[in-house]
Design a protein around this nucleic acid. Structure first.
Length: 123
DNA sequence: GCACTGACGCGGG
DNA sequence: TCCCGCGCCAGTG
């Protein structure tokens, strides 16, 4: 690796605004590795990003919340999101957020700002 | 090095 | 919009 993907991912995840949901692929993209969505999931699952990561704000590209195993109770992620005002609806595939409504929609400026942060911190 | 895994994503139909 | 198949790639044993 030429840089530490997980450190970048931690910075991006901590920047997800309260009351918004981001996708694995979106985080990977902002870290400069658009094809590493799976590694974002891996890092969250295994705690590779350190403390104070709002993992409940990360969902897949369809807005589906992660499966039961990841959080202590099956509806913890849902409850955390709802406590922030995110609407979560039940589907056959599991709990789902409306990314149109509550997704974190990045601006180009935001993406460029992350790149500057990484460069400044040499990660 | 090899095979398999998985909190994933996309393009085509 | 919804499925499905295939591609992806760091970790793990």
């Amino acid at each position: 690796m030429s840089y530490d993907f997980y450190k970048r991912a931690a910075i991006v995840c901590r920047a997800i605004p309260y009351g918004k949901a981001a996708t694995y692929g979106q985080i990977a993209m902002l870290c400069g590795r658009p094809r590493n969505a799976r590694q974002v999931g891996y890092a969250l699952n295994r705690g590779r990003m350190g403390e104070n990561i709002p993992a409940h704000r990360v969902v897949n590209s369809r807005g589906i919340l992660s499966g039961a195993a990841a959080f202590e109770t099956r509806d913890l992620q849902k409850r955390l999101l709802e406590s922030e005002g995110v609407k979560v609806e039940y589907t056959e595939d599991g709990w789902r957020v409306d990314l149109k409504r509550d997704g974190w929609h990045n601006t180009m400026e935001e993406a460029l700002r992350f790149r500057e942060i990484f460069e400044a911190q040499n990660i």
